[in-house]
Computed example of a mutant assay.
Amino acid sequence: MVTTIIWTEKGQRELIEILKYWNHRNKSKSFSARLNKLIEEQLNLISEFPKIGRTTDIPNVKVKVVHKYLLYYEIIEDVLYVLTLRHGSADPKSLKIR
């Protein structure tokens, strides 16, 4: 069971960029707020069921689909680290976790 969720700087930066993008594109914060809530709900689900994500080629790193985004995370002891958040259509070869 996960007791703490920590966003890495990279993960935080990407989340903010995604939310800003949708605010600008839609000229509204409505979708961004719903997306942010969905991400929070999925993180809570991961906290309860840490193995719910799909395994990746990167040791100890899992990925969970959230809407059209891929949330990469790692669990060390009882801490869930959100490593990166990126659009599912992004080139997989450009993935940089840290």
Rank of each mutant, 00 (worst) to 15 (best):
D57S: 13
L38N: 05
I18G: 08
G11P: 08
I16V: 11
L15F: 01
S94K: 15
K68Q: 13
N23F: 00
D78S: 10
A90D: 04
R86A: 09
P50R: 00
H67P: 05
S47D: 01
E74I: 03
I76S: 15
G11L: 05
I75N: 06
V2T: 06
V65I: 13
R13D: 10
K96N: 14
K93R: 15
I16C: 01
K51D: 12
T55W: 15
I52C: 10
L83R: 06
H87Q: 13
W7M: 11
L38T: 03
Q12Y: 02
S30I: 13
K29R: 05
A33L: 14
I6Y: 04
E14G: 01
N60P: 01
Y73C: 08
K64H: 05
G11C: 10
N36L: 13
K27L: 13
S32W: 00
L45D: 03
S47Q: 03
L95H: 09
L45T: 04
K10S: 10
L71E: 01
I46N: 06
E40P: 10
L15V: 06
A33S: 10
I39C: 08
K68F: 08
W7C: 05
M1R: 06
Q42E: 14
Y81E: 00
K93I: 05
K29Q: 11
I76D: 15
K93M: 13
Y21N: 12
K37S: 08
G11I: 04
L70Y: 09
W7S: 07
I75C: 08
R54M: 13
Y81T: 00
L43S: 01
E77T: 14
R98N: 11
L45G: 01
I75R: 03
E17V: 01
R13E: 09
R13V: 05
G88I: 04
E9M: 05
D57A: 12
R86M: 14
L15W: 02
I39W: 06
E77M: 02
V79M: 12
N36S: 15
S94F: 10
P92D: 07
F49L: 03
V66N: 06
I16M: 03
L38D: 01
M1T: 04
L38W: 00
P59S: 08
N44P: 05
Y81L: 06
R86C: 14
P92L: 08
K27Y: 00
Y72R: 11
N36M: 09
L70N: 14
N60C: 07
A33R: 12
E17P: 03
I75E: 03
E48D: 02
T55P: 15
S32L: 10
E17D: 12
H67F: 04
I39T: 11
E9V: 12
A90T: 09
I39Q: 08
K20S: 11
K93P: 07
I16Y: 00
L35G: 03
R98K: 05
L70P: 12
R98T: 08
S94Q: 15
M1V: 06
R86H: 07
F49T: 03
N23D: 12
K10P: 06
V61G: 13
